[in-house]
Amino acid sequence: MRDNAPALEFRDVSMRYDEGRAVMHQVNFTLERGTFTYIRGRSGAGKSTLLKLAYHGLEPTAGHILVFGEDLRRLPRARLPQFRRNIGVVYQDFRLLGHLTALQNVAMPLHVAGVKSTQLRADVKELLDWVGLSDKASQLPVTLSGGEKQRLAIARAVITKPKLLLADEPTGNVDDKMAMKLMYLFEELHKMGTTILMVTHNDGLVERFPHPQLMLEDGYVHAV
């Protein structure tokens, strides 16, 4: 991780899934540190794919992806865990662990990093409070509504205070009031220096919280 390298860089990145047409054609863009950027585009445009490439959940067909100056192609497997601890991801499909409680789900990123859970209990409680789930701490994800699951996924993504937050439609399943509340949380993280890349379809939010936008269209990316 280089000190003043951009948070995220795509250099001539092309992506094609094993079967099917290309999703990205030689995409280039740079996200400087501390920026807040939206990704927009139609359904199926490749927004989730772009995030997946950024957290190294996928290898691009061609090109290079650099996260804080680190070329993901050259990142040895042994250093992946450390790399991922600097990145928070809110998945479009949440990916909560169904047999663990809300509290345990949120605590997991710190638990796997070896933080004693007696120490992190206060942090987890506070964060659950923030997303309005403190009264659901001991419930399993199946017993939560779509919006509640989403808030849980957000809490898990930010508990490690990541340097880069990748959020895939984090306000897609909540009402406007909750969406606003979550946006304030993101704005606060942004003010603390977190680089944020957020997929959204919500024009109202973009208007209310204006930030640069990247548009994904026909496999190409352009700034709006």
Binding site: P81, R84, R85, R95, V112
Partner: peptide
Amino acid sequence: QTIIATLHMTGATDRF
């Protein structure tokens, strides 16, 4: 498999 993938994404080491 899915749980393992999720753990990996949250920064779990193979040892863990």
